[in-house]
């Protein structure tokens, strides 16, 4: 059937706007790729496998770079943050959807609004709170006892001289991404058809058993929320820069200062033009971050479409 002429006009008018976001991503990716080439040509795969940050001003031959510490730092902080945020988000959904009776709609809405506000808060606020409040608290009441009593575990073996370290960055990130994970899980949870809820309750389930069955139904959305949260945690910059410690340590011990890719870019990019290859190395790390974000977000969206097909 032929499309009406005015619909075609509408379609062609909107097409450029609709394609803009895709074009921006492609442009971004190509700029990062092209500008990464000098670093790739010079250092090759060793950029990913070595932990070196030795810029020498005006002497290209003497400069040496390897991104292993920030890359691993990014993966470790984002993974811990994601793993910590899932039980927090699931508990929030449990409280708001199952513990509070249906008649307490206002309290349920208040929880949602509060979490939305958390999602919208400027990340610098989280960063400052993390550096000035969270880090000292964790240092005194968590890290020191952790090191004292569980120091035999390599992850807690290093002495915590400062609260600014990989674990603080991970925990702060978990607080920051919880609203996003919560939003994804809660949306799927509230969309579970009444017939499944009735079926579960009719079996004589306790609230906890009922919640477990319901979570099972939306399991792909839990994974989706985790993947989307991971993408967000991996790319978070300002707050992490303030609390991660910014040191090129491999994250064998969570209580030592570390680095993440985004923190590295934020800290070094201003100086980069002064050093040969540094700019290209930073853009390469940006490309890796973009790739990580794209993969985790795409996987998350695919999982979400699976849960929609299921319920």
């Amino acid at each position: 059937m032929a499309e009406p002429r005015h619909d075609k006009l509408f379609y062609y008018t909107l097409l450029p706007f609709a394609s803009t976001s895709l074009a921006i991503v492609l442009l971004l990716a190509s700029i990062l790729a092209v500008n990464s080439l000098p670093a790739i040509e010079r250092y090759g795969l060793s950029l990913l496998t070595r932990n070196v940050w030795s810029p020498v001003e005006l002497d290209p031959e003497a400069s040496d770079y390897g991104l292993l510490a920030p890359l691993l730092g990014t993966l470790v902080t984002a993974t811990i943050a994601t793993m910590a945020s899932i039980p927090i988000a699931a508990s929030l959904v449990y409280v708001s959807e199952e513990v509070l009776p249906a008649r307490m709609l206002r309290v349920r809405s208040a929880i949602s609004i509060l979490v939305d506000v958390m999602a919208g808060m400027p990340t610098i606020v989280y960063g400052l709170w993390g550096a000035l409040v969270l880090a000292p608290l964790l240092l005194n009441y968590v890290y020191q006892p952790l090191n004292k009593y569980f120091g035999f575990i390599p992850l807690f073996a290093c002495s915590p001289y400062t609260g600014l370290n990989i674990l603080t960055a991970s925990l702060l990130l978990s607080i920051m991404i919880t609203p996003f994970v919560f939003a994804v899980v809660r949306e799927s949870y509230t969309q579970i058809p009444l017939s499944y809820r009735e079926a579960s309750l009719s079996l004589g389930t306790t609230k906890y058993e009922h919640f477990r069955i319901m979570l099972g139904i939306i399991k792909p959305s839990l994974i989706a929320g985790a993947l989307l949260g991971f993408g967000r945690a991996a790319s978070e910059t300002v707050a992490v820069t303030l609390v991660v410690g910014n040191a090129f340590n491999l994250p064998y011990c969570l209580l030592s200062p570390g680095y993440t890719v985004s923190a590295l870019i934020a800290n070094q990019f201003n100086n980069a033009p002064l050093y040969p290859y540094m700019e290209s190395v930073l853009l390469f790390s940006g490309a890796i971050l973009l790739l990580l974000g794209l993969v985790s977000n795409l996987a998350g969206l695919i999982m979400l479409s699976r849960v929609k097909a299921r319920v």
Partner: peptide, 22 residues
């Protein structure tokens, strides 16, 4: 307690609703 009531009963609904993840 609804839990005690439902432990005595079981129900089959008009629309089939087996749990899709099991």
């Amino acid at each position: 307690d609804p839990y005690d009531v439902r432990r005595l009963t079981a129900m089959v609904f008009q629309e089939p609703n087996p749990f899709p993840h099991l």
